[in-house]
Amino acid sequence: MTQVSMTVNGKAVSGDAEGRTLLVQFLRETLNLTGTHVGCDTSQCGACVVHVNGKAVKSCAIFAAEVEGAEVTTIEGMANADGSLSKVQQAFQDHHGLQCGFCTPGMVMSATALLGENPNPSEAEIRAYLEGNICRCTGYHNIVKSIMAAAGQDTSKIAAE
């Protein structure tokens, strides 16, 4: 066990970690931030995506020790300062971009990262960017629509509710 320290959602935190302790375990088990989920063991589903120093990473494929000193943002840190939903979060609610909610934290983190890199992505760019985020409920229709809406695009012409 060694002690690791980092900033999570703007707050300095530290805790014990083994070499093999993954960031997602540190978040869920040490910090009790259970919004970040684990949906696979081959680093493909993306339910565990968080931001490390502003970049989307899979917290199941990085050791806590590697994040020493870094700025980490999780889904718990995504709402606005006044507690209201962020633009991306709000768009997901408005456009029914989630069902069971399990992949949702990773989707929101990836979508937010995408809009940071590319504020006005096309439908194809959104779909390509979500390659590492698997959703089994929504068929992606409303996720893509939510992200387009969060980017300020007119989604009224997209078929159906």
Partner: peptide, 10 residues
């Protein structure tokens, strides 16, 4: 229910 799922509070 979306609010809790979207904020990591599920």
């Amino acid at each position: 229910e979306d609010v809790r799922f979207l904020t990591g509070n599920g």
